[in-house]
């Protein structure tokens, strides 16, 4: 079973890297970029076949390691085939 986890900075948390990217886009001539926030994306392959169990495990993984919930939110998406 394949899953994707998206980790993003919470609102209000300063993102200096996003700001630098925003500035670089501007200097490349892309106008109208109002804001850029940088995040992380994980593709995880699991042996688990039960979607509910997989989701619970991925949730635990996100909380324990993939995201730092002081500053980051995460979203889990599972390919249910």
């Amino acid at each position: 079973m394949k899953a994707r986890i998206k980790v993003t900075l919470k609102n209000g948390v300063l993102d200096p890297q996003g700001k630098a990217i925003e500035g670089a886009l501007g200097s490349l001539g892309f106008s109208g970029v109002e804001s850029v926030r940088q995040g992380k994306f994980f593709e995880v392959e699991l042996a688990e076949t039960d979607p509910a169990k997989a989701r619970a495990a991925l949730d635990e993984m996100s909380k324990k390691l993939l995201a730092n919930t002081v500053i980051e939110n995460y979203a889990v998406e599972i390919d249910e085939q």
Partner: peptide, 11 residues
């Protein structure tokens, strides 16, 4: 300890 050390504001 509480909190987190983020990327330096000046990058």
């Amino acid at each position: 300890l509480p909190g987190v050390l983020m990327r330096n504001a000046g990058l």
